[in-house]
């Protein structure tokens, strides 16, 4: 059975020194319960693979504040003072990837590919030490797959086989990471019985998910931008 009681049970086997992928773009679509449980666990020396690794002191930033992270593989650290400070102080190693490269490296990891050639980063610091190849007259550089020990993902609806359906822009890196780890943990807003999800509506087939549990989510807003209705 893939269904587990809570995040604590879902994270069994996650130990210090491991690599962990965490879905989410900023604070949107984060596996909030897994992050919270990890922050309380005392596990350290983690390599975190995530687009932002937290933001505004929240989300994965809690792990940074607890000094549980030794390396971050991400694409953007703006708006994340914890990471910027520890990076500049040399306390955390940061590997910056172009966002599309990060996504595709994870996809490659899950899809059984060794890597891929991309034009992104040619002629920049990203190309340092990487193989260049001219293909049909254009220069590409080689980017290697990314895998992890654990992937922590979040979806709106999941069934007991691990089939997942995402909601709005909470999808982002979640389905990609779910494919690329030795153990994939999914926390879902709503856990349903097998057969309740229409097969056409399943965004990620359950074979990628090892453990699943239902959890409530705060869905914090980073930048609350609204407009006002004009008076009629």
């Amino acid at each position: 059975m893939k269904v587990v009681k809570d995040a604590r049970e879902a994270l069994q086997g996650l130990e210090s020194g491991m690599s962990v992928m965490s879905g989410g773009f900023g604070l949107c679509g984060n596996p909030e319960q897994c992050i919270k449980t990890l922050a309380e666990s005392g596990i350290k020396d983690l390599t975190i693979i995530s687009n932002n690794c937290g933001n505004q002191g929240r989300g994965l930033a809690a792990l940074l504040q607890n000094r549980q992270v030794s390396k971050v593989i991400c694409s953007f650290i703006g708006g994340n003072p914890d990471l910027a400070t520890q990076y500049l102080a040399g306390e955390v190693q940061v590997e910056l990837n172009p966002q599309g490269t990060l996504a595709e490296r994870i996809r490659a990891g899950g899809a059984g590919l060794g890597g891929f050639f991309t034009p992104t980063g040619v002629g920049t610091a990203v190309a340092d030490g990487k193989e260049l190849r001219e293909i049909d007259g254009r220069l590409y550089l080689f980017e290697k797959l990314l895998k992890a020990d654990f992937a922590l993902v979040r979806a709106a609806v999941g069934d007991k086989l691990g089939n997942l359906r995402f909601y709005r822009t909470s999808r982002n890196f979640n389905p990609l990471m779910a494919m690329a780890a030795r153990v994939t943990v999914a926390e879902v807003d709503t856990l349903v019985e097998v057969g309740e999800l229409d097969p056409d509506d399943i965004h990620l087939p359950g074979l990628f998910v090892d453990r699943i549990f239902e959890a409530s989510h705060e869905n914090p807003i980073e930048h609350r931008t609204v407009r006002t209705r004009e008076a009629r």
């Binding site: 694409s75 703006g78 910027a84 966002q99």
Partner: peptide
């Protein structure tokens, strides 16, 4: 200033 490239390079 280091913010990372995000999606800018792509």
């Amino acid at each position: 200033m280091v913010t990372g490239m995000g999606g800018a390079m792509d």
